[in-house]
Design a binder for these strands. Sequence first.
DNA 1: TTAATTCGGATAACAATAGTCCGATTTTTA
DNA 2: TAAAAATCGGACTATTGTTATCCGAATTAA
Lengths: 134, 134
Amino acid sequence: MLKLSKKIEYGIQALQYMANNSGSVISAKEISEQLNIPYEFLSKTLQILNKNGIIISQQGIKGGYILARDPKSTTVAEIIKALEENAIIVDCLSNDQENCDRINFCTIKNPMNKLQEKINFLLNNTTIAEFSEV
Amino acid sequence: MLKLSKKIEYGIQALQYMANNSGSVISAKEISEQLNIPYEFLSKTLQILNKNGIIISQQGIKGGYILARDPKSTTVAEIIKALEENAIIVDCLSNDQENCDRINFCTIKNPMNKLQEKINFLLNNTTIAEFSEV
DNA sequence: TTAATTCGGATAACAATAGTCCGATTTTTA
DNA sequence: TAAAAATCGGACTATTGTTATCCGAATTAA
Ligand code: FES
Ligand code: FES
């Protein structure tokens, strides 16, 4: 398993949709219907993206969301972080793992870290804009 | 989430251990104790690696495992595959997903595939040998 | 023949993901 | 000013996937 969650997948596709319709405020309902994504789940996802500055919400009737920034400057890595997930390939490389019961036996931290950094590079260099230019 | 499973993590570390002790047959028990990995779970993992040609088993007392190939030629991608998992970042890119109910709405296949290929390149170019030269 | 090991199938415990429900709040507009 | 359509937020449920364990059988060296 090395899979992005549905939250991230839906989030990216929704941002892509907004990028392709920039200028107008897009509702969760519209995205949900156009992309066939479960409405309630998508709503939650967009709320988190809003809370963390990736998109801007407008409440009330006629409300919805718009991108907070240029699609070129919003990376997949930022989206993952904004959705309160991480892209750490082994627990080993996590910050809050003082309680790993294998830490004194760990022989993979360094090599795994090298691989991690390469993956991070990819995630940091893939932007929403690249999803728009289909 | 973009995490490797414990099966893969343990598998890689076990292979690394074998690479560092090449020449001798290593039992699951020894690896389990040396690396503090749950014995039964590790056993299963090694059995799968054996079945799929990454290591060679020797049964009976004094039995255990040795690497089937040069650590330099065993990649992380192969290990993942041998452990019957995959490293597909979104379902979209999977072979057996005729039943994705978003396929007619899918706008992420191409860009996701580009990212996938870059990740595949990393996994195909990281070998067990690199884990040994700590 | 015994002991230490792999083998293989089933199953259980746990955790994470995915999805839903519902009431409250906001804001436009008729 | 009331209604409608949207976001907000918390709790909750369902489902799936991961991790771990159990146990009996087969294998083989001593
Ligand atoms: S620190 Fe726990 S396995 Fe590396
Ligand atoms: S094919 Fe199902 S989301 Fe791309």
